[in-house]
Amino acid sequence: MSVGEKRFLGLGLYTWIYITLGLAAVLTTAALTMTFFFTPVVLADTVVDELRVIGGVPIQNQLLFSQKIFYFHVPVAMSSFLVFIFTALNGVRFLIKKEKIYDTKARIATEVTLLFVLLTMATGILWTRYEWGTWWVWEPRLTTYFILTLMVIGYFVLRNSIDDEERRATYAAAFGIIAFINAPISFAITRLVPSSAHPVVFRAGGGLISSQLIAFFLGMAGMLLFAWSVYQIRLREQDITDRVEVAKAALEE
């Protein structure tokens, strides 16, 4: 059975892909709307939702507009970690079973990871520039995430440097598993190194209030649905490309 012929709840995979892609667009738009219209603004590490006096006039909220990047930057970063799990999982499955499909799944998962990693870096750099006044700081979270970025790019460099299909898949699987080890390290580094400039957002006692959490989780759900959709589209594309190759070979015979 090819990828596109799978069915769930009476609907084909194609239908599900477009449903989830549409849902991802709706959820991310809802997160965006909440971010700009409902979540209070933040000053440093504290939510400010009180009257302040600026120039002798009481003003509701001292706005730190740049913090609004958080509601998409963090879900994109978290998604990059979560999608990268599939690179490692499929790498392990390939090394055990030696079936091409797992290599294909690992490669596509890494491709989606690369997209999220690049977007995390781009949004993070803009945030860093405004908040800290510099484009880049060698602090633990940024450094470990930078290493992760290089490893994800390195995964494709490695693949392109090996011609033999079997060897390429084996090396890529091993590299993908090793590269993934950096993901939990990068995720937990703000807890392991408390001096990190990145605050621990989810902590005992709470770091976010409910409206912030809703916006965050809407964005998170949207990003994960988006990741699943594009992963499935790429898988389907690869499946058809393979069938085209087989059909072309049949024509040439």
């Binding site: 600026i54 706005l63 507009f65 690049l118 977007l119 949004t123 803009l126 594009v230």
Partner: peptide, 29 residues
């Protein structure tokens, strides 16, 4: 002036981040 300084200083960065994000995601899709 104070309001615009605090609000709009960050605006290009926020808008730039969201623009890049949507462009990247939906461009790829």
């Amino acid at each position: 002036q104070e309001i615009y300084r605090t609000v709009l200083d960050g605006a290009p960065f926020v808008l730039g981040a969201y623009f890049l994000l949507w462009l990247g995601l939906f461009g790829y899709a």
